[in-house]
Design a protein around this nucleic acid. Structure first.
Lengths: 347, 347
DNA sequence: TTCATTAATTGGAACGTTCCAAACTGTCAA
DNA sequence: TTGACAGTTTGGAACGTTCCAATTAATGAA
């Protein structure tokens, strides 16, 4: 039963050539005669030979394996990201170790170490929360190309592909202003992350640009989840001078914000403008459909993988920072539809 | 920069022992003296030695790598499945090649071949549509443990973990009957798949058990997608004797069916009962919230991985077929809420 | 004939581990 | 003094490839 023991020497013997010749055939060298190539090919098929890439990697001390480590595969944003990477990695003839860390930095450390032992040629990492530059330093110093995606790690000189959180947030806020809102909040997300900081600065800058209030009390941080959204909006509703619209840290928070508004008998998209971030799949089908900043995660994944492969092939390389552009997708939750209706009546 | 060249002999030289001793330390053998163990350990850390698992695998001709191949990672059902597997594989000290096939059987063949060349110890496969027994035969015959998950491949004697489609479908239909429906359709899905067949038989059996019509015209197949759901419900609405409720092949189809009903001014969950299958994340938040058959994909993934590891460790093993139980989650789309309201009024 | 040239093939030494059998230490009993 | 024994350590041969230098065979020119 377990017979997968046929090696290149077995093939050589059966074909009446030397192992070197078989090796040459395997790598499609032009040195070998057509006749022998055919004969060897036939024997390979007949014997059910399977190439041992591990042995080859050992000899050549290089591999066609890349590591992909993602913080949360159950989040469709990161799943799409992974699929994008998978596509380009596969078509380049590479294969990937892929692991999910569930936002656990320790686990992340373990899988990266394990991948290293297995001899990966490069790593794409969507870091778990709490990842520090020190965690990654040894890997980076070893000269293995690393590309960070979706989230950055401050203090680490390494390539990255992130979305333009600043521009996205600013666009969303400008849209709300255009709809007539003058007091706008920023809800949800942990305020110690780089992503939060970037989006929040976009929010602030757009408000200031319009000469509006951008004070600290308008920024309410919380867990970046649905529950966090509920919590944040409750705190917001307790304010004396209530905002009339909010930009949320991400779509999950936005859904929570909608829940929270409804329990307070405020209808999102009618009485209050809500905008999310990421454009997860559910955003389109939710009620009200969520206005959100879309970031094409699959495209980001593809770009990250391309960057990594480029760095693997170049012997030497410099860290490169790519910023994926974003666009505002206007649906219902911001109240734009309502305004159009009002205008139609007025006209 | 690229210096990762330190091997076990370098460590041995630096520590003043032989490479054999270092190897012993590496595998935590009790043979080695505490003093030497400590010294070697220190040198290892100092030199930044990284273990070359590829070389070890070559020598021992076995690996701690498993393959996970999934047909569609962007589908949250399969993403959850993958995360479940990831958990148990990681905690068992294994690492996984993981690849997405996008339902492409050719690509699936390629990645499996590649994983084999890299020396995986076993494979968990959620097969792409159109996978035949012949595609997998060589792998299975080689003695490498294979576990199929979510979908089965007919004619292949290999372990599998699937959900109980028959019981789930039957439970859903019984629920609809209990709500007073007498004419029920089965909508969506390709009728040449094993999963379709199983769910459809559950549908039929429940109808016959209640003495209701279970004729062929009530089964309308289509693509197992949202668009397929729309198409199927349109065909259903053209029937002279219209059904009043439907069990859908999966949740995506169910969403499409709701769309289609609405375009015909029929309100799902009020004028027509809809039940889905799989309980994807969106099912809970959709409007109306989808009544559906829940299958705990993460749990299935865990069980599949456990089964695979068991078979890897057992030298010899028999194919084993696990059936994951399912439960009906009653929400709004079936009309149960409506009925309760009616009953309250009547009472 | 002889020699250079090209085309095709080959043996053996790597690559970084593990494993086996053998070889060192001491210690203690005979 | 010898031998038995346990506790440690070790050299070299694998594992299945690739690569280099070297060999052989065939052809053609001198």
């Amino acid at each position: 039963m377990k017979q997968s023991k046929v090696t290149v020497v077995d093939v050589a013997r059966a074909a009446g050539v030397s192992k070197s010749t078989v090796s040459l055939v395997l790598q499609g060298s032009s040195l070998v005669n057509e006749g022998t190539r055919a004969k060897v090919g036939a024997v390979i098929r007949e014997l059910g030979y399977v190439y041992n890439r591990g042995a080859a990697n050992l000899r050549q001390s290089k591999s066609k394996i890349v590591g992909i480590v993602v913080n949360d595969l159950t989040n469709s944003f990161f799943a799409e990201l992974a699929v994008g990477m998978d596509m380009v990695v596969q078509s380049a003839g590479y294969i990937q170790f892929m692991a999910n860390t569930s936002e656990n930095a320790d686990r992340q450390g373990e899988v990266i170490a394990s991948m290293r032992e297995h001899g990966m040629a490069g790593l794409i990492l969507s870091p778990a929360r709490g990842t520090t530059a020190a965690d990654l330093r040894p890997l980076v110093d070893s000269g293995i190309p690393v590309v960070l995606v979706a989230r950055n790690v401050p203090g680490l000189k390494v390539s990255s592909v992130v979305s333009d959180g600043h521009a996205g947030a600013a666009a969303a806020v400008r849209h709300l202003i255009e709809l007539g809102h003058r007091r706008i909040a920023f809800l949800g997300g942990f305020n110690d992350t780089a992503v939060f900081d970037e989006r929040m600065r976009g929010f602030r800058d757009a408000l200031q640009e319009a000469g509006l209030n951008a004070s600290d009390e308008l920024v309410i941080s919380s867990a970046p989840s649905r529950a966090g959204g509920v919590a944040a909006v409750e705190r917001m509703l307790a304010m004396v001078d209530r905002p009339t619209a909010a930009l949320c840290f991400n779509d999950a928070v936005a859904f929570g914000v909608c829940d929270g508004l409804r329990s307070a008998r405020i209808e999102p998209g009618v009485d209050f403008g809500v905008i999310g971030f990421d454009d997860v799949i559910e955003a389109k089908t939710a009620v009200p459909a969520l206005t959100t900043v879309s970031v094409d995660p699959q495209g980001m994944g593809r770009r990250a993988a391309q960057l990594l492969l480029k760095q693997i092939n170049a012997g030497d390389f410099d860290a490169e920072a790519l910023v994926a552009s974003v666009r505002l997708v206007v649906r219902e939750s911001c109240g734009a539809a309502q305004r159009m209706k009002r205008e139609a009546v007025t006209a």
